[in-house]
């Protein structure tokens, strides 16, 4: 359990251009070990989401590189990157990004549809929704859901295709303590039972401390690493 799945090497990322240019990440390096759970913490605007997007192949770093199982992501073809995002990665967005025109079940099954899965889609969707207490809302449009419900749908969508790495941007940010508990239970079950590598951004010290390792980001730089996995 010490194989490095994802290796981030001195990545930099800026937004905007000219005088409006903002350096969100100023050179961050870290290794993600197969099966571990990593919490990224830090003040608002410090660059946590930016880092997560880059790691999840949703954005391209300006400088530095990211390796997945030893292979540089920048060398991947567009098609290979798509397959990676669809089959190996799961992503929970900070602002959920559900399709408001589709039902809960349609949103959750999207990765399966895109991946060309045909068998058991509905059953798998209901199973996950059931775990998150939303099975009875399966056929409603997501636009009628509350913030917390949307967040749980987003999590269901991220885990439905059984990814190898799950990136979650504040997965319990919109949830009350009961639902927050359910969600973190689900995430760590997947982590422990199925060996899914977990990377989460969180403001909750409790949730962060459940992870084997915590990194702190401040002003686009990695400040410190702590936790049992810190030695790595």
């Amino acid at each position: 359990m010490t194989e490095t799945v994802l290796s981030v090497r001195d990545i930099q990322k800026s937004y905007g251009s000219g005088s409006g240019r903002f350096r969100a990440l100023k050179g961050v390096s870290l290794n993600l070990v197969e099966g571990e759970s990593l919490a990224i913490v830090g003040k608002s605007g410090s660059g946590k989401s930016t880092l997560l997007h880059l790691m999840g192949l949703l954005d391209i770093p300006d400088e530095g590189e990211i390796l997945y199982r030893g292979k540089s992501l920048s060398a991947l073809t567009s098609r290979a990157a798509d397959t990676l995002r669809n089959q190996e990665f799961g992503f929970v967005f900070q602002s959920f990004h559900l399709d408001p025109h589709s039902t809960v079940a349609e949103n959750v099954s999207m990765p399966l549809v895109i991946g060309g899965v045909k068998k058991d889609r509905r059953r798998r969707v209901i199973e996950v929704l059931d775990r998150l207490g939303l099975a009875d809302r399966a056929d409603e449009r997501t636009s009628v859901l509350s913030g917390g419900q949307k967040q749980r749908v987003a999590i269901a969508r991220a885990v439905i295709a059984k990814p190898r790495i799950l990136f979650a941007d504040e997965p319990t940010g919109a949830l009350d303590s009961t639902n927050g508990e359910t969600v973190s239970q689900l995430l760590f079950d997947l982590n422990k039972q199925e060996g899914i590598t977990l990377v989460m951004v969180t403001h909750s010290p409790e949730l962060a401390s459940t992870c084997v390792r915590q990194v702190v980001i401040s002003d686009g730089l990695l400040l410190s690493t702590s936790g049992e996995g810190a030695a790595r």
């Binding site: 098609r79 990676l84 999207m110």
Partner: peptide
């Protein structure tokens, strides 16, 4: 745009 971005994020190929 956002919906299409989401599909791309979830791994839908450009060709699709």
């Amino acid at each position: 745009t956002r919906q299409l971005g989401l599909f791309r994020a979830l791994g839908m190929p450009r060709r699709t």
